[in-house]
Design a protein around this nucleic acid. Structure first.
Lengths: 158, 158
DNA sequence: TATATAGCCGAGGAATTTAGTAGGGTTTAA
DNA sequence: TTAAACCCTACTAAATTCCTCGGCTATATA
């Protein structure tokens, strides 16, 4: 388990689906503009989220992504695991042969640590995030901003 | 709070001091050969650990590093914080102006998360690591290996 | 059926971080 | 005086992150 901004992007995007996806699928273009994340980068993240079956997609106009399970059943740990790809790059973590064929000093310590953090993040569901006061107030601001943009467009049409 | 292999190196090295430093300072050369970490890289890590006053150094022959507090009072979180430099690189984390002057959706979520993980790692002392069975068995293997190397040298002298 | 909307996919690239090298110093015990 | 050790700066290869570009495919709707 690694904690980087990549994971945060993924969690933010998934939270966007949980917040706004109750009436049909959400396009990544919408997520991109609301959350200020580059569209292509989102596409890459969602390819992984889709492979891990956290979201499902529908193509064509009006299409987009939706959560493949109720938000109560999707946890922050699932999302971070999906995008982080735990390839076990250097040394320890995976195969226990970190130091000349044996485990290194902190091998088990680190796997324990990972397990516990994982367990901790496994208790936080998207649904519980949606109910947070701070998330709701940021969401309200984003909606207001979108309405303003929309009214500017309508005014320009006149 | 970031969790990378860099932090693991630092924790491993500090644990080495806790295990073997009870009779005077330990040279980084010793840590390097016991834990298979490059000497120069250790120097860089220990420069940070020293600045954060987790270790103190003595120069000259017979010198080295020692823990600047009892191992009961040094926690994994201290060590990771010391080497990770939390510069708050991209976007969120620090100054709350992640999205056009406001906080982004998951800003508070992420700081909360960091706080909790930090709190969790703040409960694990070097002393408690030294008492772990798996740490003791790896340590025993390392000591045995060192004795073998020593006896090879002595044999060669004959 | 044509068209626009969206997902899908792969190549590549700049910026940053990681892990390490190189090469000098300075201090100090013996 | 010498050698062991810390100290410091600069550099580098590799990996990772974040992002761009360009094209392809599926599909709702006009």
């Amino acid at each position: 388990m690694r904690l980087t901004t990549k994971g945060r992007y993924a969690v933010t995007a998934m939270l966007d689906l949980a917040l706004y996806g109750d009436r049909g699928p959400i396009s990544l273009a919408d997520v991109s503009s609301r959350q200020d994340i580059s569209l292509s980068y989102l596409e890459q993240l969602f390819a992984k989220l889709r492979r891990k079956e956290l979201v499902s997609s529908s193509r064509g106009p009006g299409g987009g992504y939706r959560l493949s399970r109720p938000s109560e059943e999707i946890f922050v740990a699932d999302i971070i695991d999906a995008v982080d790809e735990r390839v076990d790059a250097t040394g320890c973590a995976g195969s226990s042969d970190c130091q000349d064929g044996h485990t290194c000093l902190t091998h088990n310590l680190w796997t324990d640590l990972s397990d516990q953090i994982h367990h901790f993040l496994s208790d936080i569901s998207l649904a519980s995030l949606v109910e947070r006061r701070d998330v709701q107030s940021v969401s309200a601001r984003q909606l207001q901003k979108a309405r303003n943009a929309q009214s500017i467009i309508l005014t320009a049409v006149d």
